[in-house]
Design a protein around this nucleic acid. Structure first.
Lengths: 144, 144
DNA sequence: CAAAAGTTGATACTCAATGGCAGAAGCAGA
DNA sequence: TCTGCTTCTGCCATTGAGTATCAACTTTTG
């Protein structure tokens, strides 16, 4: 894809929206946000801009297992966690990017390493609780 | 999705195909393989079976950034690497599942942790070489 | 200010994956 | 082996995310 050459209102809006939404908006969410103040923008433009902004490093993209990609106003590299029940997706705070891992993998694979993403998967506190209750219920009437 | 209750030919074929294809086939690839010897199978059935087999732990699923999901006859947990240029996707050999990381994240997030996936991103040897040549070219005629 | 080239909006389209449903097939139990 | 209850399958329509196309419109450069 082409490098960014011009400065358009739409692109500013995309950056602003990702920044405003902060917590990993999807392209759809970014679009919805922008439409509120600039109803003429088209979805294609949002997608295009998200792509080129990622490509030139102004935004980060996180691919979410079975879900739309999410965008990130990058401050620093960090990992993500997804609740396998409700799908909630968030940053993992307090765990730093693992140093040396990329180098180790580069040595093992002969790839020219760029970075790595880790997505943790588990149950968020709410869902963990709900799951426990469900299980108790199942033991009760032993359905299925 | 419902648990597996019956043993159908189609399901056997799906398992066999994933095992045979070994290197992370997509649902489509699994389908193509099965059709060769059992032309009546439908794509829906392949998808449904892949889903339920993953759900009951007989197969693993890997979500690939911008690409179809891939399935895995699980032997042990391992990480993956994707070439950001040609999209090639493969296992990372020689790097073991990082012990203790899930526990650390569980402590930090209060999630009931299940596992984590790491996808490394970089250029495969071929693409790294190609990229270097491209770059040399650009320096030559300084286009754009 | 005009020409050149990047961008946009609209819309059609692709591709992965799911949903709905009638009919077929697996799996008890008689 | 037959019966009948369910699960599964095949078919096909549908959803959803994201891309392609292209004329019209802006931004930039000179």
């Amino acid at each position: 894809m082409a490098k960014i050459k011009r400065n358009t209102i739409q692109r500013q809006l995309v950056i602003a929206a990702v920044r405003f939404l902060a917590d990993h908006p999807t392209a759809e969410e970014v679009y919805d946000r922008i439409v509120m103040e600039y109803p003429d923008i088209s979805k294609g433009t949002v997608y295009r801009n998200l792509n080129s902004l990622v490509e030139c490093g102004l935004l980060g993209r996180v691919s979410v297992p079975s879900g739309a990609d999410r965008y990130d106003h990058i401050l620093s590299r960090h990992y993500h966690i997804k609740c396998s029940r409700c799908g909630k997706f968030m940053n993992v705070e307090n765990i730093d990017y693992i140093q040396g891992l990329d180098e180790k993998v580069a040595a093992a694979t002969h790839y020219k390493m760029n970075h790595h993403d880790i997505v943790f998967s588990g149950l968020c506190p709410d869902c963990a609780k709900a799951a426990e209750e469900e299980e108790a219920q199942l033991l009760g009437d032993d359905a299925n």
